[in-house]
């Protein structure tokens, strides 16, 4: 085995520091007793308490979670259906186009996605708010969900579905009793991914929301313009924890799925 040299160690430390030092600082200062962000005043959970009494912030957090729950579910259902269509029907008119279009939101700049959705809502005279944010989030996370499920379906043994049909299952029964139970880890991972994407989105939400539907990232962003407070640090720390749990959960599910698929 090659020795782990000093250079490699330094590179590793520098890399991780670059990635995680800001987050560590944010977390550390959320436990700062001092009101001044730049001055360490001793350990305290005071700001978490203050957070719990900040009603506008709590409202925004609750709204964000509801948006994420509904839009992730919507995106997972639609993304799974799209993945099934792409994996099952190898040849249909416009397959390449459809496949490309599903993936487009992945590379599309968020500003453009947000702006185009805004224009659509304005043109359609849709009142902007809670539901428009949900639709927007489902739209852009659908592509991610589709990719995750499609990867699982690529290794799916189709004779399992044929066996189910052969044994008397209708197409719907086959999906419910064989296909879905076998791809559910990928579906769950897709849902968690979509949930995370919705949770921390600022740009698209800003474009598509309306009065009375301010999400947490938007609330935090506007609060920062008035100055960073440890309270915001505390809110961010909680969000980081939530996102980390979802991401780790998703990757564990995908890993388990890969092992089971062998």
């Amino acid at each position: 085995m090659r020795r782990f040299g000093a250079f490699h160690l330094a590179a590793l430390v520098a890399g991780f520091a670059f990635l995680y030092l800001p987050i560590v600082a944010l977390i550390a200062y959320s436990f700062n007793a001092s009101r001044l962000v730049t001055l360490w005043g001793g350990f305290s959970t005071h700001w978490y308490g203050a957070l719990m009494r900040n009603q506008p912030l709590l409202d925004a957090a609750w709204l964000t979670i509801r948006v994420a729950l509904v839009s992730a579910t919507l995106a997972t259902v639609l993304g799974t259906l799209a993945a099934l269509a792409l994996a099952r029907y190898r040849v249909f008119v416009g397959r390449t186009l459809f496949s490309g279009m599903v993936m487009a939101p992945l590379v599309m700049p968020e500003v453009i996605t947000g702006l185009s959705l805004l224009l659509l809502f304005v043109a359609g005279d849709v009142e902007r708010g809670y539901w428009t944010v949900i639709i927007a989030h489902a739209t852009f996370s659908l592509g991610f969900a589709c990719i995750v499920v499609q990867a699982r379906l690529a290794g799916f043994d189709r004779s399992l579905e044929e066996a189910a049909r052969d044994l008397g299952a209708t197409p719907m029964e086959t999906f419910a009793t064989v296909t879905l139970p076998l791809i559910w880890p990928a579906v769950a991972a897709a849902w968690m991914l979509a949930f995370t994407l919705s949770l921390d989105d600022l740009v698209i939400a800003s474009f598509t929301t309306g009065p009375g539907a301010t999400t947490l990232p938007m609330r935090l962003y506007s609060a920062i313009r008035l100055g960073v407070t440890p309270e915001i640090n505390a809110a961010c720390t909680i969000m980081i924890a939530a996102v980390a749990v979802a991401v780790i959960g998703a990757s564990l599910l995908m890993k388990r799925d890969a092992l089971a698929g062998r």
């Binding site: 043994d157 004779s159 399992l160 044929e162 066996a163 189910a164 049909r165 052969d166 044994l167 008397g168 299952a169 209708t170 009793t177 064989v178 139970p181 076998l182 089971a260």
Partner: peptide, 28 residues
């Protein structure tokens, strides 16, 4: 296929990996 009184044993066996032996046999 699901309405034919014909059953097939697949070359790969196509056993449902998420079901037990008993549930596999009971499936049909």
């Amino acid at each position: 296929p699901h309405k034919r009184p014909v059953n097939m044993m697949f070359q790969s066996y196509a056993l449902f990996p998420h079901l037990s032996v008993g549930d596999n046999i009971a499936y049909g």
